[in-house]
Simulated scan of single mutants.
Amino acid sequence: MLYSDKAPEPVGAYPHAKKVGNLLFLSGVGPRKKGSKEIPGVTLDAEGNIAAYNIEEQCHAVFENVRLILEASGSRWENLVDITVFLTNMKDDFATFNKIYATYFKANQPCRTTVEVNALPTPIAIELKCIATLE
């Protein structure tokens, strides 16, 4: 089991990643900031519900968190082979996500599945589940 000291802490009893053979499996990664409950691009109301969010900011933050976990685990961005994307609002966010995603994956294009979910464990609009190879 692997943990990154730079990525946000898991919100449950699971590691950031796990090595199996020459593969690295990342647990679901969101856009939260390490050491706080801050979520880039999210405004919460008094009850802790999402009042407004910026999917662009969340996309950049989640990609950065994935990169931090990959590097801490002995892999790298270019080694990603499969990504499952969970969006809470496919209708409004998919085009923006897809545009940003394309800027991060010019040379390496992993397989990808994108699904809409009703909610995620914290007040976020995106989460990634990734598989990468190890060096």
Rank of each mutant, 00 (worst) to 15 (best):
residue 31 P to N: 06
residue 57 E to R: 15
residue 33 K to G: 00
residue 99 K to T: 13
residue 59 C to F: 13
residue 62 V to I: 07
residue 9 E to C: 05
residue 62 V to Y: 00
residue 87 L to N: 01
residue 90 M to C: 00
residue 86 F to M: 14
residue 15 P to K: 03
residue 39 I to D: 02
residue 79 N to L: 08
residue 32 R to D: 04
residue 12 G to C: 06
residue 31 P to C: 08
residue 87 L to R: 01
residue 10 P to W: 11
residue 89 N to W: 07
residue 41 G to D: 09
residue 17 A to C: 05
residue 85 V to D: 01
residue 96 T to Q: 05
residue 99 K to E: 14
residue 36 S to R: 10
residue 99 K to G: 02
residue 93 D to Q: 08
residue 87 L to E: 01
residue 72 A to V: 04
residue 50 I to G: 10
residue 46 A to N: 14
residue 22 N to R: 08
residue 70 L to W: 14
residue 15 P to F: 02
residue 54 N to V: 01
residue 97 F to I: 02
residue 55 I to Q: 10
residue 73 S to H: 09
residue 46 A to C: 04
residue 49 N to T: 08
residue 88 T to F: 08
residue 55 I to S: 11
residue 7 A to T: 02
residue 69 I to D: 11
residue 32 R to N: 12
residue 62 V to F: 01
residue 96 T to N: 00
residue 28 G to H: 08
residue 55 I to R: 08
residue 37 K to G: 15
residue 97 F to M: 07
residue 94 F to K: 12
residue 81 V to M: 10
residue 24 L to N: 01
residue 15 P to G: 03
residue 90 M to F: 13
residue 12 G to E: 03
residue 21 G to R: 04
residue 29 V to Q: 14
residue 70 L to R: 15
residue 97 F to V: 03
residue 86 F to E: 14
residue 31 P to M: 03
residue 23 L to H: 06
residue 17 A to I: 05
residue 88 T to M: 11
residue 23 L to W: 04
residue 93 D to V: 07
residue 42 V to N: 06
residue 43 T to M: 07
residue 57 E to T: 11
residue 75 S to W: 05
residue 16 H to S: 06
residue 65 N to A: 11
residue 90 M to R: 13
residue 58 Q to K: 13
residue 93 D to L: 08
residue 31 P to G: 13
residue 87 L to M: 05
residue 14 Y to G: 08
residue 23 L to E: 05
residue 35 G to H: 13
residue 71 E to F: 02
residue 93 D to Y: 08
residue 26 L to K: 09
residue 9 E to A: 12
residue 84 T to E: 15
residue 87 L to W: 04
residue 17 A to N: 02
residue 100 I to N: 01
residue 41 G to S: 11
residue 79 N to M: 12
residue 33 K to C: 09
residue 76 R to F: 11
residue 91 K to P: 03
residue 83 I to M: 09
residue 94 F to G: 07
residue 19 K to C: 00
residue 15 P to L: 03
residue 42 V to I: 14
residue 75 S to I: 07
residue 51 A to K: 15
residue 11 V to G: 08
residue 72 A to L: 02
residue 84 T to D: 15
residue 48 G to N: 09
